[in-house]
């Protein structure tokens, strides 16, 4: 018993040190964002800026249209997420509750698309959007993102684990499928819908490869692409770069801390349950 308490303590200490190490890069990012450029060259590993100032943030806005990048990211993430909420709830409902020919084939098809990495098919996607004349337009960043198989999956699985009695009662009372969906299903799948919204928003906000290829000019860049460009242009200006990085991370962190339990649910739901 004594020995096991000893080991518990050791494990506890190791875990806390590990957590501090995991946290360190954020603290470094935050502190560097408020440092001055000369301090980078002189200071030690100190996490407390000697001359606390907002120069880095000002420089970030001066060096690149960071405000525009942030707006673009917010706009495309919000619109795509609304689209995904709509397409995943209707599709998830159809796949979980309706009986019709071809349903299981369609489900397998949707599953199958998860096997196609968009890194591999980026060239034909680019050519296709070029035919449409969508390159360097919001359409290229929004419309292909309006369907998210992972989201369909979450909604479908959630519905399969939900009792059907309420819906059946509604149908007997004369509701059609759409009325049942709006009045009975929607209020009851809010936890799953929240998971979908949070995951989709973060996924779109953090996406890099697609917007990198599909946009050409500064005014269409998202914040992730903007950060990468800033990095190549100002390789040593860490306070400015960290200030921009801090701003880019605020929305996802805010969502994470507000809705943490949905994140964990989403990971477990996608990985363990399928």
């Amino acid at each position: 018993m004594k020995q096991s308490r000893f080991w518990s303590r050791i494990v506890y200490i190791v875990v806390v040190i590990g957590a501090l190490l995991t946290l360190y890069p954020y603290l470094w990012m935050l502190s560097t964002a408020f440092k001055t450029q000369p301090e980078i060259y002189t200071s030690t590993m100190s996490l407390i800026p000697k001359h606390f100032n907002l120069q880095g943030f000002a420089l970030a806005f001066h060096n690149a249209p960071v405000g525009r990048f942030l707006f673009n990211s917010m706009f495309i993430s919000v619109v795509s997420t609304l689209g995904v909420a709509l397409t995943s709830i209707t599709a998830g409902y159809a796949l979980a509750r309706l009986h019709f020919k071809g349903r299981d084939t369609i489900f397998l098809l949707v599953l199958g698309t998860m096997m196609i990495p968009h890194q591999a098919t980026i060239i034909p996607s680019y050519i296709l959007l070029n035919w449409f004349g969508w390159i360097n337009e919001y359409k290229a960043l929004i419309i292909p993102q309006m369907v998210y198989p992972f989201a369909i999956f979450i909604i479908r699985n959630f519905l399969l684990s939900m009792p059907r009695e309420l819906e059946e009662a509604a149908m007997i009372d004369g509701c059609n499928r759409n009325q049942t969906l709006m009045r009975i299903i929607l209020p009851n799948i809010l936890p799953a819908a929240a998971t979908v919204v949070i995951f989709t928003f973060s996924h779109n906000w953090n996406d890099f490869f697609w917007p990198l290829v599909m946009t050409k000019t500064d005014e269409m860049r998202t914040i992730q692409v903007g950060l990468a460009i800033l990095r190549t242009q100002f390789s040593m200006e860490w306070p400015m770069l960290m200030a921009a990085t801090v701003m880019s991370s605020i929305p996802v962190f805010a969502i994470y801390f507000a809705f943490q339990r949905f994140f964990v649910k989403g990971v477990v739901g996608s990985a363990v349950k399928g």
């Binding site: 590990g18 995991t22 946290l23 890069p25 954020y26 890099f208 992730q224 880019s248 996802v252």
Partner: peptide, 12 residues
């Protein structure tokens, strides 16, 4: 804390 790096973007 341990989950938080998953949340930020790969670029950040």
């Amino acid at each position: 804390i341990f989950y938080s790096p998953v949340v930020v973007s790969m670029i950040a």
